[in-house]
């Protein structure tokens, strides 16, 4: 389990980087980059879980599915971003705060 914590440390730092990026940025594309980094952290966590329990085959099949899903989600998200851009010609999140929350 010592091994798990040394990976867990880096995974937590990666999560912090991703969350910070999403919270602080005003750029829509960069928010998606932050999401990608979060997904990377989850991917690594699954692989590490498979490695320390000796379930590498299961973990790999989960990660393959996860990567396919990730690609589709990001494609649709890019479609939405381009839709926003075609309306107000900018990727700045400050220009889109029409909604009250």
């Amino acid at each position: 389990m010592r091994l798990f914590w040394s990976y867990g440390l880096f995974i937590s730092i990666l999560c912090i980087i991703g969350f910070y990026c999403i919270l602080v940025t005003y750029n829509l594309i960069r928010a998606l980059v932050g999401l990608e980094i979060l997904i990377k952290a989850a991917t690594l966590l699954i692989i590490v879980a498979g490695y320390i329990t000796g379930h590498e085959a299961l973990a790999q099949s989960l990660v393959i599915t996860l990567i396919v899903i990730e690609a589709v989600v990001i494609t649709v998200a890019v479609g939405i971003v381009l839709g926003i851009r075609s309306h107000n010609n900018s990727l700045d999140a400050r220009k889109i705060r029409n909604l009250k929350g």
Partner: peptide
């Protein structure tokens, strides 16, 4: 445009 913004928020 409002729907796109809401969709983006939902995606995040």
């Amino acid at each position: 445009v409002d729907a796109f913004e809401a969709a983006f928020k939902y995606i995040i």
